[in-house]
Design a protein around this nucleic acid. Structure first.
Length: 458
RNA sequence: GGUGGGGUGGCAGAGCGGUUGAAUGUACCGGUCUUGAAAACCGGCAGACCCGUCAGGGUCUCGAGGGUUCGAAUCCCUCCCCCACCGCCA
């Protein structure tokens, strides 16, 4: 959610933001509604102020007269009744005025609010302009010593690779058929060592965050109220992506939504709170099951573990002071964390600076990390495995997550988030990169303690 | 699911139709005192929004929404949430 004051003062910043993010939000309509709203507010408040003033002034008098009225009769009684009626007439008129303005307000407020929620966080100035993922810019790439990006898999390794579909079948790691039988397309069952490898990655990632990066691991709800989805910025834009539990249809309570990322639960933690400056930065991670409808992705990545409705993800978030330099420093650090983890697992990857057109509503900057998947496409492709975002105060504004700075001033905090490890997607490069000619797969050393010491699958 | 009790400022806790955005305590901040600290004393201390160049003014908020009233934290209705006990249960 953006700052409306800033919008009034720098409308072009937001008009350009919408344009650069290739979105369709009528900023000028919002400005017009905002102006209308404030005019109504001014009239309404003036009437109310008068109402309050009058009430204080004549209220006790009315009380007095009504007291007298009880004991009065005849002409005296008529006189009192007229006096009371006269006194009561004016507040009644003001009341009608207030009600009238309230109707006006009711007519524009829903649209005003809906538009306000849609205006995106403008991208940072240094984010390159572009229309979509095709315009993202590669920053750098890394590969283990045994891998040369300029060569094919065969040239690197001396044999034809199997893709992850073949590998999981060969070793009985995933049962797609039964997953689909139970839950439909894009579902799967992790079986045997498949589940163990999956959990090994997740456990390794959580321990890495806690032990080596000082993040506090949290177990958070994955079933949350709508406010939580709106507050974290996933709604209204991403409403179609979330599974909706319609508890309200059962009579009572509120509807719930399955979260598509642990970010929701982690950021929702401190919604509506006022933190002390010393409490910042908050550094949280979680491992949670993520649910995504993948609406609009029909026909894309239909096979295998790449795009599925349910997966598990270790996510990291940082809530820091409202300071651009600090936020950038955390962004770097969070990306560095991921690089350390990927490198320790012997995976090749590249960093992409996402262009303006590829940013969502809530981020001002985003770096995607794509891991090399030898079995993807023709002769291997990079596939997104991580995404690191800087959100400025957009998310905390929506969540109403504030802190008191050193001077006692209330400020909205800045938030950042990044994937640590999302599985089973990460199993794709893991299996494909570490496969041997005979189809067996070497388990990276860092994962073996979490696999009961197993060093090789198959 | 049943029964009962509750939701008021950072926390505790009064208020139960007008002068209460809210007593009091406590926490916190500033000051006096002190070699320093504590204690004591004095002062300050809600947030959002609107108008205004400033000074300042105004509106709203006592779980949420609606109603009664000239006037609601206080009365009425609906909903939500919390707590306790019972039932059921991974």
């Amino acid at each position: 959610m953006i700052d409306l004051k800033d919008l009034r003062e720098n409308p072009d910043r937001y008009r350009n933001g919408v344009r650069d993010k290739c979105m369709d939000v009528d900023v000028d309509r919002l400005l017009a509604l905002d102006e209308a709203r404030r005019a109504i507010l001014a009239r309404q408040e003036t009437a109310r102020a008068e109402q309050n003033r009058l009430s204080k002034e004549i209220g006790p008098r009315i009380g007095q007269l009504k007291g007298k009225l009880k004991g009065a009769a005849g002409e005296e009684k008529d006189r009192l009744e007229i006096e009371i009626a006269t006194l009561e007439a004016k507040p009644a008129q003001l009341k009608a005025e207030v009600a009238e303005e309230e109707r006006h307000m009711g007519a524009i407020e829903p649209e005003w609010r809906a538009l306000w929620l849609q205006v995106p966080q403008p991208p940072s100035n240094d984010v390159p302009k572009g229309k979509g993922s095709a315009d993202n810019i590669e920053i750098r790439r890394w590969a283990p010593k045994s891998w040369d990006f300029s060569k094919s898999f065969v040239q690197n390794r001396g044999f034809m690779p199997r893709n992850h579909l073949e590998l999981v079948k060969l070793h009985g790691l995933v049962d797609f058929e039964r997953g689909v039988k139970m839950a439909g397309t894009r579902h799967y069952v992790l079986t045997g060592l498949g589940l163990r490898l999956h959990q090994a990655v997740l456990r390794y990632a959580v321990d890495f965050m806690a032990d080596r990066r000082g993040f506090t691991p949290m177990g958070v709800p994955v079933l949350v109220k709508e406010e939580c989805m709106v507050g974290t910025g996933f709604f209204p834009a991403g409403r179609e992506q979330a599974y909706h539990i319609e508890e309200s249809k059962r009579g009572s309570g509120h509807d719930l939504f399955l979260t598509g990322t642990g970010e929701v639960g982690l950021m929702g933690l401190h919604a509506d709170e006022i933190l002390a400056a010393e409490q910042l930065p908050l550094k949280y991670c979680t491992v949670s099951t993520c649910f995504r409808r993948e609406a609009g992705a029909a026909g894309r990545d239909t096979a295998g573990l790449y795009r599925i409705h349910q997966f598990d993800k270790v996510e990291q978030v940082v809530v820091c002071k409202a300071d651009d330099a600090e936020s950038r420093a955390w962004h770097k650090q969070m990306i560095e964390t991921v690089e350390m983890i990927l490198q320790s697992m012997g995976l090749a990857y590249r960093l992409l600076q996402c262009c303006t057109g590829d940013l969502g509503v809530k981020n001002e900057d985003m770096i995607d990390i794509e891991s090399w998947m030898p079995g993807r496409g023709e002769g291997g492709e990079f596939g997104e495995t991580h995404s690191a975002s800087r959100l400025n105060d957009f998310q905390c504004r929506r969540l109403n997550l504030r802190y008191r700075d050193e001077s006692g001033k209330m400020r909205f905090a800045y938030a950042l988030n990044n994937t640590v490890a999302a599985s089973p997607r990460i199993l794709i490069p893991l299996l494909e990169m570490h496969q041997q000619e005979d189809g067996s797969v070497l388990v990276p050393e860092v994962l073996r303690p979490y696999m009961g010491g197993i060093a090789k699958i198959g």
